[in-house]
Design a protein around this nucleic acid. Structure first.
Lengths: 219, 219, 219, 219
DNA sequence: GATGAATGAGGCTTCATTCAT
DNA sequence: CATGAATGAAGCCTCATTCAT
């Protein structure tokens, strides 16, 4: 008789309350990716999550906070996974680069989250707060992650002494563009190609481009 | 009658009138590229073109029609210029690829027009008509152009027997991403790199990735 | 059983329950005075009273009822206190006037209750019922009180034969305005003056204005 | 034939445009005084002025700007008139004080503008920008104005050596309270008194309170 | 043709009120 | 009794579009 009824009484309520943020970010991700940030109406997000417009404000301070939550929930775990992958990786750097890129694609690019970069590129100019948030939380971490892979390859004598900063961008560009293509124009032309086909050729070209000459000659 | 520009005022007036649509699309291009579609106000477009908001409606049916005109007028001349550049090249395929990419960058990427791809990718979902127009008029022609370069290289034994369709996308991705970065987030991180530095590393990696092995072994 | 406050928990609980309305109106008084009626959120009232928003509705029908309760509960006790102070004064009328005004200030003006007049004046238009209640319960009684003081002074030959009705308002105006200033704008400019400094000059001017000419001539 | 048609053509339009701000501030004054600042809806202001909600924003940046315009248009001219009255006044200071107070009442207190002080006192806490605007533009100027009158009286040996800062507030309090009473509670009790009756007793008391003793004794 | 004043639908956000637990 | 999640009606403000001049 201490108070078991108290726990039971609120289970449904509580369960709802705990599930709501996730339901809302899921609905928001769908709409942000589909329509873009500015064109997504919070009314629609709420409706898709099956709640009223006011309820959304019980869980998020507003549109911007909702978007940040979507990014934090979706992208940051993927980055963390990438970081832990790099930290504990024992194989050669080619394999590491493959693992990291494939991981990014599997966790982000091939999911609905893959629509986020397009949205960021398109609307960063109008939402400086979001742009700087994304830059600090995602781009810098991602860049650092890839840089560490390239640098590892150079340090171990597996990759040429490339300009790391530029190379990071060259390496990630085809990955980002495939995300963009998946979520906008040109769906048929290149999205018709399987991930396997795309990334097989991608790695073939990139790794040939990065590897030290097999002859062992300098550079 | 000394200078042609000093003709009777009626001529000036008329020239003015005929120039209006172009002045409006030019102003609109600037703003669409800078702010995106939704955030561009027609007030601002009209003000930048030096006319009143009402006047804009004399030449375009509305915001959507203006947007379409901007893309059409911006892309087609650039495309034509790009194609004329490539026609009749005589050197080896590496040099041809360099010439084509550099040409695209010089004529489009480094110009205001370089903001168009970002626009298209961002708004394709909301303007299917624009998307299909762009796909047919630009992407297919551009893809064909690049395909011919790759195929030429393979045919001449200069490039490996890559999957041409995929490779075209891999080759163009870093060029498109550099356009996008120039016009959105991450301006400092990568846009701080000079075009020379960026494309030097780009060609180094891409061409090593495409070239047949120096040993002359197959593939 | 050592201290009475340490009785059985049931008593505490019950006392709690009976104290709730008072705790709520106290919290509401603070916030209404600080922010005004419209800007006071029931969320904040409930939070300050340490209960949930729903609980507030167990004791009051809504915001309007709460506001009325605040005014009623805040003013009536103060009025009673003021009246008991005045009853049975024996000195001259100058001293009586001083005692009454100082009493009003000490019991009301300098307390949280001093914010009530501002509230009333501001919201009377929106709450006619409050206005008439306040008029009958407070203003008339207060006016009567002050009138009796002025009339006493006139009857005893201490004050000039002023228009009593008007003079009551002239006498109370600087007291009310000091309450208002304490609770709104101009806090620094005049609230920086001490009560002593303010009321010293107030009595000097008012009593010179009320006294019969020292020469003893009529009026 | 230079371009008289141009002037004529737009007369109606222009006349409207020039009249609009005044129509809007007049409507706004009515509603602000009647309902208070926060409770006044811009929809209603626009409707009372006979325009749509959007039109209001062609002339004012928002609610706050509209309110400031109301104050600037209504109160500042009265203050300026008071200032010029003081600057060029030749009579004795009693007459000057009478003239200034009567002027304030005639230009502000007895008009709809007389509802503004109540509104400011009631809502200053919630709109700091408006509070500081009003403090700087109205209260400080008004205080300075009255101070100069009191100081003039003291300097000319007409008034006692009162604490000027406090006295200014004591002098203005019955004027402000009469404005407040006119626009909220107690309409009958004191507003039933004529302005003449009210201010006659006001001046009688205040001036007796301020005057040097007729005997010529110090203070 | 050109203007720019006017419109009104629609978006984000707030908050008094309700009700299932 | 008490809770607090949920609601939905407004309010402020923006801006694409229209139309009288």
């Amino acid at each position: 008789m201490t108070s078991p009824s108290r726990c039971a009484k609120k289970t449904t309520h509580r369960r709802r309350k705990e599930a709501r943020p996730g339901e809302l970010t899921a609905a928001a991700l769908d709409l942000f990716v589909e329509k873009g940030y500015a064109a997504t109406r919070l009314d629609d997000v709420a409706a898709r999550a099956g709640v009223s417009k006011g309820t959304l404000y019980l869980y998020f301070d507003g549109k911007e906070a909702l978007f940040k939550a979507v990014v934090r929930e979706g992208i940051l775990p993927a980055l963390a996974e990438g970081e832990s992958l790099v930290a504990g990786f024992a194989g050669n750097s080619e394999e590491l680069l493959r693992a990291v890129v494939i991981g990014i694609w599997r966790l982000i690019g091939s999911q609905r989250l893959g629509g986020i970069p397009k949205l960021i590129f398109a609307e960063a100019g109008n939402f400086p707060e979001i742009a700087s948030f994304y830059h600090e939380e995602v781009i810098q971490r991602g860049t650092t992650l890839l840089s560490s892979v390239i640098e590892r390859g150079i340090a171990r004598g597996e990759f040429r002494a490339v300009d790391v900063h530029v190379t990071v961008h060259l390496v990630i560009a085809p990955v980002l563009m495939r995300m963009i293509w998946r979520h906008s124009i040109d769906c048929c032309a290149i999205a018709g190609v399987t991930d396997e086909g795309y990334f097989a050729e991608y790695f073939e070209i990139m790794l040939r481009g990065l590897r030290k000459s097999p002859s062992g000659k300098a550079n």
